[in-house]
Structure formats: structure tokens, C-alpha cells
Amino acid sequence: MNIFRLFGDLSHLAAIAILLLKIWKTRSCAGVSGKTQLLFAVCFITRYIDLFLHFVSLYNTEKVMKLIYISASVFTCYLIFFKFKATYDGNHDSMRAEFLIVPAAGLACLINTKFDAIEILWTFSIYLEAVAILPQLFLISKTGEAETITSHYLFAQGSYRALYILNWIYRYHYESHVDTIAIVAGVVQTILYCDFFYLYITKVVKGQKIVLPA
């Protein structure tokens, strides 16, 4: 474990907590893409399948973190699609999730470390996570704005994988550890946040709200 991965995981936890708080406190999921949250839930379940196969986890905190990620993302989907369904902005959350899931699944079967079920599921989860934020970014571009709390959620969510890139550089240098699939997908994922990061740093930090040219 290194500082980059630690802060990456903390940033990821913060993102999940910020989103849950926003929905729970405002009792509304306006401005939140339910599809992105569904895709994240699928990512966690397919990636942490070892929890269900009784793989010996490396250390307890990791098992706890995996359980938190899975339960929090499923609970977030429950809030969006059931509890606060009336506030779900289905019209603007219109990016076809199939266009993300099918290519990720296909690519996972073509480019993977080992052609076995659990490895392909993990690879699918990595590829899907790289593009899972697209429906959320698409929704913001359709509504033309993002609530400040949602911007903080996106900043934390984007920072998590950006910090993981630093973690991979660190591990390459000190542990000669390289996982090309995770690195390439992580770089693509972080690049997708670039224009949002620019807007966040130039606007939200100054107290303004993000309003996209509609």
C-alpha cells in the first residue's frame, strides 16, 4: 500500500459518501445519472466476485472496503430507482448503457491476461469502469448544469483513478509491478474527466456553479 493508493481509495469512499448524502439529505436524485450508478454497481460486483468465491482476501480492510463499495453502490441504486424514483431525471439520463456494456464485454473477451471466467469478469469490470461515468457527464451536458454537491462528487470520483495512476507509477518504479490493462483503462477513465476537472477548478473552487453552454 502506498500513499497514492491510500488517498485514491479514500477519495473513492468520499465520492460514494458525498453522493449518498446528497440524495439522502435533499431526498432527491436530480442531476444524478442512475445509469452511471448501475454501471458502477455492476463494476464492483464483477470485480469483487472473489468475495463470493471465498478467496482468501489479502487483509481484512480490503474485504471490508469491497463490501462497503458493493453495498453502498447497490443502496445508491435503490435510492435512485425506488425510494426517490419520482425525482429521477430519466429524460436526460438517456445515454444507451448497452453501448458501454457490450463493447466492454467484447473487449474483455479479446484483450485479457488469462482467458478464464474470473479474469474476464475482472477485465470487463475494469473496462466498464473506464466509461461508466459517461452517462453522468452526458446528463450534465443535457441539463447544462451540475449542482455544486454533484460537482464535488464528480471531482472525488475522478481523482480516485487519477491517484491510482500515480500509484501505478510508484509501483512500477519501486515494485516493478505493471498491470497494463488496469493502467490503460485508468488513463482513459481519467482523460474523460479532464474537461470536467477544468470546469471544477476554474469555477466551483471560486464558488461558482458549473453551467455548461446549453
Binding site: F55, M65, K66, K114, H177, V178
Partner: peptide
């Protein structure tokens, strides 16, 4: 990187 060592990152 030990191949097959189940992924040690989240």
C-alpha cells in the same frame, strides 16, 4: 508482477 496472484488492488 506475479501472474495469477489475485488482484491486490481495489
Amino acid at each position: 508482477y506475479k501472474d495469477g496472484a489475485w488482484k491486490d488492488e481495489l
